[in-house]
Amino acid sequence: MSRTVVFSAYGGPEVLRVGAGDTLLVHAAAGGVGTFAVQLARAAGATVVGTASERNHAYLRELGVIPVAYGDGLAGRVRAVAPGGVDAALDAAGTVEALEVSVELVADRTRVGTIAYQPAADRFGVQRLSTERSAARLAGLVALWEKGELRVRIQEAVPVEEAARAHRLIESGHTTGKLVLVF
Results as ranks from 00 to 15, higher is better:
Phe7Gln: 11
Phe7Trp: 00
Ser8Ile: 03
Ser8Phe: 11
Ala9Arg: 00
Ala9Ile: 05
Ala9Val: 09
Ala9Gln: 08
Ala9Met: 07
Tyr10Glu: 04
Tyr10Pro: 00
Tyr10Lys: 02
Tyr10Cys: 00
Tyr10Trp: 15
Gly11Tyr: 01
Gly11Asp: 07
Gly12Val: 05
Pro13Phe: 11
Pro13Tyr: 09
Glu14Thr: 13
Glu14Asn: 06
Val15Asn: 00
Val15Arg: 15
Leu16Trp: 00
Leu16Thr: 02
Arg17Ile: 06
Val18Met: 00
Val18Cys: 02
Val18Asp: 01
Gly19Asn: 08
Ala20Thr: 14
Ala20Glu: 15
Ala20Arg: 15
Ala20Ser: 15
Gly21Tyr: 01
Gly21Val: 07
Gly21Thr: 06
Asp22Trp: 04
Thr23Cys: 12
Thr23Asp: 08
Thr23Lys: 05
Leu24Ile: 12
Leu24Pro: 13
Leu25Ser: 08
Leu25Arg: 01
Val26Arg: 00
Val26His: 03
Val26Pro: 09
His27Trp: 12
His27Phe: 13
His27Pro: 11
His27Tyr: 02
Ala28Thr: 11
Ala28Lys: 05
Ala29His: 11
Ala29Met: 07
Ala29Pro: 02
Ala29Phe: 00
Ala29Ile: 03
Ala29Gly: 01
Gly31Arg: 03
Gly32Arg: 02
Gly32Glu: 04
Val33Tyr: 06
Val33Asp: 01
Gly34Asn: 03
Gly34Met: 06
Gly34Ala: 06
Gly34Ile: 05
Phe36Ile: 07
Phe36Gly: 06
Phe36Gln: 05
Val38Tyr: 00
Gln39Pro: 13
Gln39Phe: 01
Leu40Ser: 06
Ala41Gln: 07
Ala41Cys: 11
Arg42Leu: 07
Arg42Asp: 06
Arg42Pro: 10
Arg42Gly: 06
Ala43Asp: 10
Ala43Leu: 02
Ala43Tyr: 01
Ala44Tyr: 05
Ala44Asp: 06
Gly45Pro: 10
Ala46Met: 09
Thr47Ala: 13
Thr47Met: 12
Thr47Phe: 04
Thr47Pro: 08
Val48Lys: 05
Val49Ser: 10
Val49Arg: 06
Val49Lys: 12
Gly50Asp: 08
Gly50Glu: 09
Thr51Gly: 11
Thr51Cys: 12
Ala52Pro: 11
Ser53Thr: 15
Glu54Gln: 14
Glu54Met: 04
Arg55Cys: 10
Arg55Val: 14
Arg55Trp: 13
Asn56Pro: 03
Asn56Ser: 14
